[in-house]
Design a protein around this nucleic acid. Structure first.
Lengths: 337, 337
DNA sequence: ATGAAAGCGCTAACAA
DNA sequence: TTGTTAGCGCTTTCAT
């Protein structure tokens, strides 16, 4: 690559001192410079194709305008919208994000976190929250700025931005009750995730409130196969299977679809199914899936907003922002037999 | 945040000069330092929780160990695996990636590109290739290192890593011909993408070779709605609709599913459908989709490999690496009526 | 094998 | 308003 043009080159062409170029090129200090000097500098810069070196600036200002984003796995369809939401807020404000995937490994997470620290990121947005998150605990203690997104902070006093999962479950149970279902089963996700527990507890509470018979089945992971396995077990064990399933997420619900089909049962005629997340293609499955839509893009944007606020105002409040969710009624739920 | 510990702090504790700490901490220069000095320095570093500041290092070495990744849209399901493939190669080699989304806007792309240049990325992996890619042309002329992935470089002599789409289409056509289909229709994606044209041309060539009647319908974008619209038009226009559709990608194929269903037709009994991409959940649609699987993760990893090679060996060859694809036969294709 | 010193490109405090 | 100067934390050449 040819040598990059620096502030000194611009200064020479414009006939001013490098310091003046710096001031003229920066929106915040531009006012300290004579208007026509600014013009002269800007023209010289354009002429040379000058681009400020943000590495050098970062070294000087100890602010890299970069945010580390830690997620479990980008191929899980809930994360791309979160990441895009984050970028949609950061980009216009001059920040960039660096996204890393932990694959739910604590070891990987720690090493990625350190690598981002070396890169001097100004803060973190973390979507890998779980109870006893020792890494985040230590980060907090050393004054690192961060915001949790989608998951709770597991006791660490960072701000968290989450969807109102409990309300989503209430709406699902209410919908099912309105359809005449009296015995509901919830497929709960891994209990290490705060979201799993929140949803399961809301399910039990909602059923109690509405005088419904509630059963909760634990699933080892959020996956299609695990959902199918769980539903297979229900169908092959219980003599009166439930008429409605509230799945912990859409993947689990999809597994239920497969199980039902394998057992010659139809949805929603035999069993109604509600998912959670409204992931891409939820409307394209057969039947189109009734599910709770979480505002993932907004979750991401809001977490970014909170983080920049924390960075720029140097204050952190352990607030919990809960964004509303919406029950999307499609074709996988119908009247109880 | 508390003041970060620097190489000077470590030097003081270890009782050596900062220069020596630098040499001791760096694998490449470690051999220039006395073995026990290395130990002493390393211990001091660990004790203080020293993490090298890669911004400072980058300024000095003018290498940030960061790669810019330019994609159209992360929520398009083919990109997460590509990005993960890239990271899987980059990560173990000490590189990080910064991913940006252009939403297919040339203006956005240019500004994101510049922002990444300011951040002094060591190179680019670009998935937004299209003919007349002036940005990439200019980048090439200024000596910027880059590799194209998934799409061709549109005339710019950067290396490109693509799937063997033509072979995927051949395999699809062959499969359909073997099932007795004699009249095939291809739903072609936007012609500005090289992939669209490659697939359409392969389709025509394959049909000619196998003495099949071939029809090509152009679609304005790769989307479910567009696929449905195209199939609606076919069904409502032609008196003898085709018995088999080769869709430009899975989204289009999914649109065909919807159209078929809306017209009271069943797949594959009335019409067989082949998709392209084997995107997530392709097996979960009804019927499970026959489709061509592109090795996206490998595409990403290979593009990263080529880029690092280019960076480290300072040579760029306009090579085109074509990775094999695989026809995944599921339930959306069956014997011709 | 280690120390000394310069400098990557920029910003910011201070002077003029 | 503009110039001067120091220095962010690191690497690297040159001495020793």
């Amino acid at each position: 690559m040819p040598r990059r043009v620096t502030i000194g080159d611009v200064a020479k062409i414009a006939g001013v001192h490098p310091g003046t170029v710096s001031r003229a090129m920066n929106a915040k200090t531009e006012s300290q410079v004579n208007a026509d000097t600014v013009v002269r500098v800007r023209m010289a810069a354009k002429q040379l194709g000058y681009l400020p070196n943000s590495i050098a600036r970062g070294l000087r200002t100890s602010s890299t305008m970069t945010i580390g984003v830690i997620i479990p796995d980008l191929t899980n369809p809930i994360f791309p919208p979160i990441v895009r939401g984050i970028d949609s807020y950061l980009g216009p404000r001059g920040y960039s994000s660096v996204v890393v995937n932990t694959d739910s490994s604590d070891v990987a997470e720690r090493s990625l976190f350190e690598s981002l620290m070396q890169r001097q990121v100004d803060g973190f947005i973390v979507a890998t929250g779980h109870s006893g998150h020792s890494l985040m605990r230590e980060a907090y203690d050393s004054g690192v700025r961060a915001v949790m997104v989608n998951r709770d902070s597991g006791g660490v006093p960072y701000p968290a931005v989450v969807g109102d999962d409990a309300h989503g479950i209430w709406a699902s149970v209410e919908h099912l009750a309105g359809l005449g279902h009296r015995a509901l089963t919830h497929l709960e996700g891994p209990s290490s995730f705060s979201t799993s527990r929140v949803r399961a507890e809301a399910f039990v509470a909602a059923c109690a409130e509405m005088n419904l018979e509630a059963t909760v089945i634990g699933c080892a992971e959020y996956s299609v196969d695990e959902g199918q396995r769980a539903m297979d077990a229900i169908l092959e064990t219980q003599r009166t299977p439930p008429t409605a399933i509230v799945a912990g997420n859409d993947l689990l619900a999809l597994g239920v679809y497969h199980s039902l089909r394998a057992h010659g049962l139809t949805c929603p005629d035999d069993v109604s199914v509600v998912g959670f997340n409204d992931m891409p293609f939820a409307r394209d499955f057969q039947p189109a899936m009734t599910t709770v839509r979480s505002p993932y893009t907004e979750l991401g944007a809001e977490s970014a907003r909170l983080l920049l606020k924390q960075i720029e105002e140097s204050v952190s409040i352990a607030m919990r922002v809960m964004l509303p969710v919406e029950l999307i009624i499609r074709d996988s739920t119908g009247p109880a037999r």
